[in-house]
């Protein structure tokens, strides 16, 4: 493996600015009534080379939609995604296909993300077939190599996905993503469909591969413990916006946004001795088609004031490298 890591780790790999995705949902028989679901509503984030950025949030927060836009699989309504100096959102189909060599993805459900009619060899060799002019034999040798990298073996080349367990399938998916030696891999809930003991294997594997291939990872998940385990920095999303972003340890040591705080306290404890009488957040997640005015979190926020109902707070640096979108951040 040629490891061309000439850039220092602080180099910007991807710059996301003002990213928005609004879906128009037509209702009613005559399709008159149109509601605008703001799945992603203004996301700014910088991804540095070699880091792992975790994106956490609950369902409907727009984390997966953001992921698809970073991949260039979905056109944003507004905003730009600049990857190595080029704007993905301005690329045509052909340029995007070319760019796929550098940005890859690992999906959540290893049972759904592998074509059931392809063998392992075809699945992992497919990106090489598309992007290189390698011979069948060269491709097979690379596939065998990739299988070893992800902890499978070459006897499994001719098998079909259904012959594998969930963890093994996820390894196949990872090998497929690695085949073109990408710079950035977007992991969209890569472990949440797996058994506990397998989750740990996959998390460890991702960390190992990141070191070995100098990968940059965006790790999208709803499970904070897994995100904490793998990420260098963590962004917390709520209803289409990043509400807080900072280094991992900083986030766990002192969250600034009340939502982050609530999220951290909602996670079941590590040990029965840590049980508390914490009263969980009340209410449900608001409907993204009809988000609350002002700060989207004000309907559930224990500290909400008048201004929170009226004005949406912007993402500001309240401490060094610690940004939060809150009028009354939790200083402790």
């Amino acid at each position: 493996m040629t490891n061309t890591s000439e850039a220092p780790s602080a180099d910007v790999l991807m710059e996301v600015k003002g990213l928005k995705k609004h879906f128009q949902v037509k209702k009613g028989y005559f399709k008159k009534e149109i509601s605008n679901v703001k799945a992603v509503d203004g996301v700014d984030v910088t991804i540095y080379e070699g880091e792992t950025l975790g994106i956490v949030g609950e369902s409907g927060c727009g984390k997966s939609t953001t992921g698809e836009m970073l991949l260039g699989l979905m056109k944003p309504t507004e905003g730009s995604v600049t990857f190595m100096g080029k704007d993905l959102t301005a690329m045509n189909k052909k340029e995007l296909r070319e760019m796929r060599k550098d940005i890859q993805v690992i999906f959540q459900d290893p049972f759904a993300s592998l074509n059931p009619r392809m063998t392992v060899e075809e699945l992992i060799g497919e990106p090489l077939k598309i992007h290189t002019s390698k011979t069948k034999k060269e491709i097979r040798n690379e596939v065998v190599e990739l299988l070893e990298v992800v902890g499978l073996n070459q006897e499994q080349l001719k098998r079909y996905p259904h012959e594998f367990s969930g963890g093994q399938r996820q390894r196949i998916g990872i090998a497929r993503a690695l085949a073109l030696k990408p710079k950035l891999i977007i992991c969209d809930e890569p472990v949440s469909a797996l058994d506990v003991s397998i989750q740990a294997q996959i998390l460890n594997l991702l960390k190992k591969l990141q070191r070995e291939f100098n990968l940059t990872l965006v790790f999208i998940a709803h499970g904070l413990p897994a995100v904490r385990n793998i990420s260098d920095r963590i962004a917390v999303m709520y209803l289409g916006k990043i509400v807080e972003i900072t280094d991992r340890d900083q986030l766990f040591a002192g969250a600034l946004h009340p939502y982050t705080e609530a999220l951290l306290k909602s996670i079941p404890v590590d040990h029965p001795s840590l049980r508390s009488n914490y009263q969980p957040l009340e209410g449900d997640l608001p409907n993204p088609a009809n988000p609350p005015s002002g700060c989207a979190f004000h309907t559930r926020c224990p500290f909400a004031q008048e201004i929170c109902r009226e004005k949406a707070p912007s993402l500001e640096e309240h401490r060094e490298n610690h940004h939060a979108a809150c009028h009354y951040p939790l200083y402790k």
């Binding site: 991949l71 699989l73 995007l96 296909r97 070319e98 796929r100 060599k101 890859q104 993805v105 999906f107 759904a112 993300s113 592998l114 074509n115 059931p116 497919e126 990106p127 598309i130 992007h131 998916g173 497929r176 085949a179 073109l180």
Partner: peptide, 9 residues
């Protein structure tokens, strides 16, 4: 898996 096909170009 179709999304994944698009993702590999």
């Amino acid at each position: 898996y179709v999304k994944s096909a698009r993702a590999i170009g």
